[in-house]
Design a protein around this nucleic acid. Structure first.
Lengths: 230, 230
DNA sequence: GAGTATACTGACCCTTTGGTCATTTTACTG
DNA sequence: CAGTAAAATGACCAAAGGGTCAGTATACTC
């Protein structure tokens, strides 16, 4: 556990329990949400008694946070690897969408936690904004870099790389959400293809319609809109 | 309240309380989420005692459902009106995005409830899928129709209208979420313009890149992916 | 195998909160 | 203004669940 000495018996047990608890937590939080999940349930799922849980994680919050972080780290790692493997921008976009869709579909409970976490961020009054911002940043940085390069290299039209990345991010999340909720068969591959084609066509160089000025309504929103209440 | 006889005193009071409670509920549920909200808090916010709440709504679930439904109805109404006012497809798309973004930004607490509801749908094990499906359908039907017409009329390239609509839907939601979480100024108008331009460029007729076959990973997902567990 | 350290357990405590209802307040009627 | 119906109240109840810890089981040591 620390440094690199031979792991003691305690280290091994700790690692084993921590892992089992995290897996159990992901399953339970994914299925019931933070409030719906009970420590008792998580403990049973990990084949321990409730008290044991508190030997490895300080609180419900702590185990939730750990489970979420673990998934995010793995997701980021996979996303980054996929993008780095892509030789050019359109492949990078496809890789981003594909890698994430794949990961989420292999880890449905994690995806549920992920969506709930995003929802919480919007709901909660507590301004844990910075932590959340960092999380999104980690997930989008690589793709944003690739898009920025595409723009400066003239590969695609002049767009705000951050906005484009976030758009792809949103599309992917929506796509996965639908795949998970779907009761009838849902052709993920073709949905992924649609999203990538939509985005690629939308970004590709061509006579850009240069963000046609929208009249009326939208204009009124011009001013910076901070977190002001309705 | 029923039929069209002169409203009795009771009717007036009922309407007044119901309305106050729904407003209060939206505020509280929006800020604290379903579980975080307490009936006591909602009651206080509506200037009544807890018991009074139960004179007008059977349960916490009931008031939650009523508040959500009311917002959805209004949102749908506005969205539909905006689309119907649009003379052609690209205006319809812009109208959809703008109308929704506007409504959500004017009713931030409702938006929070809305996002939480979506998240719940994904999280919850209970298959209330059909009700949810209906909700999304109501919100997208009009735009989907417009897009379908655009396709058959050859105005845009051959795409699945449902998929395109859902994509626009997702982009709008993401955009609003960011506007609401944003700590620094956030230029909604330009974000709306970006999304509409991205979509419009992406859908517009042109040498369609015909969903370039994605090799590898995505392919493996081909089979219908139902709600199977990880 | 006695002795000790480590790991685990679940009954228990305490707070929170959805929902109820006997009682009180308010408004209306004749 | 007495009498009655409608409306509102908040103390109360019961269930649920996060977290604790005294006690028990397991494993390791000499």
């Amino acid at each position: 556990m620390h440094g690199h000495r031979r792991p003691t018996r305690t280290d091994v047990i700790t690692e084993y329990r921590r892992d089992a608890l995290l897996q159990a937590a992901t399953r339970v939080f994914g299925k019931y949400g933070f409030d719906g999940a009970t420590m008792e349930h998580i403990a049973r799922e990990a084949d321990v008694a409730k008290g044991t849980t508190y030997l490895y994680y300080r609180s419900k919050q702590a185990i939730y946070h750990a489970a979420l972080s673990r998934g995010l780290a793995e997701l980021d790692q996979r996303t980054h690897a996929a993008i780095d493997r892509a030789p050019n921008l359109d492949d990078a976009i496809a890789a981003f969408v594909t890698a994430r869709a794949e990961y989420f579909l292999e880890h449905r409970d994690f995806f549920r936690m992920y969506v709930a976490a995003i929802s919480r961020q919007i709901t909660s009054v507590k301004p844990r904004a910075s932590e959340f911002q960092a999380m999104v940043d980690r997930q989008t940085r690589r793709l944003e870099g690739a898009i920025a390069r595409g723009v400066s290299r003239g590969e695609i039209r002049q767009v705000d790389p951050a906005a484009a990345t976030l758009a792809i991010f949103d599309l992917t999340r929506g796509l996965v959400a639908r795949a998970i909720v779907a009761t009838k068969a849902f052709d993920v591959a073709s949905e992924v293809a649609f999203v990538t084609s939509l985005v690629w066509t939308g970004l590709k160089k061509g006579k850009a319609p240069a963000a046609r000025a929208r009249r009326g309504a939208a204009e009124r929103e011009r001013a910076g809109v901070g977190p002001r209440e309705q």
